[in-house]
């Protein structure tokens, strides 16, 4: 599928989508509530068949948070980047996609650990790198830790 067709497919599921082409991929920004439906559609639909989630990134912007999903189809060879925008920066929540791609289970735990984004329906949402009693979420931009972060 070329990018135009992909756009149409995405629009048919999530009409309020914004598109952007950067970094060699088609970037799709959607509200977080739409994510699971879109992901499931892209995974299951015969024309798209995005079966390989190769990168899952959390991002902290001043007003909102974003979870980025890099998808690729091993049969069709096309790629897409979904950016799910979470408006509530203080208590971010989003649906898990670990039921669609198994690898997301670990990656979502990592994002939860470092950004504090809660993935609803995740089978085992715990901190993965840090200790269970760690305060705060280190990769957030407003995280301060005077002991461990040395400013050069």
């Amino acid at each position: 599928m070329d990018q135009e067709q992909l756009k149409e497919t995405v629009l048919s599921v999530a009409p309020e989508t914004e598109f952007e082409e950067t970094g060699g991929f088609l970037n799709v920004t959607i509200p977080s509530a739409r994510l699971h439906d879109l992901a499931l559609h892209l995974r299951e639909s015969e024309d798209t068949l995005f079966d390989y989630l190769f990168c899952l990134t959390g991002m902290d912007w001043p007003e909102y948070m974003i979870v980025v999903y890099h998808l690729k189809s091993t049969t069709h060879g096309h790629s897409i980047v979904i950016k799910a925008k979470i408006e509530n920066r203080e208590k971010p929540e989003i649906d898990t996609v670990s039921d669609i791609w198994r690898t997301a289970e670990f990656h979502e735990r990592e994002v939860f650990d470092l950004f504090g984004i809660v993935f609803r329906n995740h089978p085992d949402l715990r901190r993965i790198f840090l200790e269970d009693d760690w305060m705060g979420y280190p990769l957030r931009k407003d995280y301060v830790d005077e002991v461990n972060i040395i400013e050069l």
Binding site: F54, C55, T57, D60, H70, R102, T103, F106, H107, E110
Partner: peptide, 18 residues
């Protein structure tokens, strides 16, 4: 602003339990 490394080992490890 943000830099993410997609490390192969992390994903490979996730399949270990399975």
């Amino acid at each position: 602003y943000r830099l993410k490394f997609r490390s192969p080992g992390f994903s490979n490890l996730s399949a270990l339990d399975h």
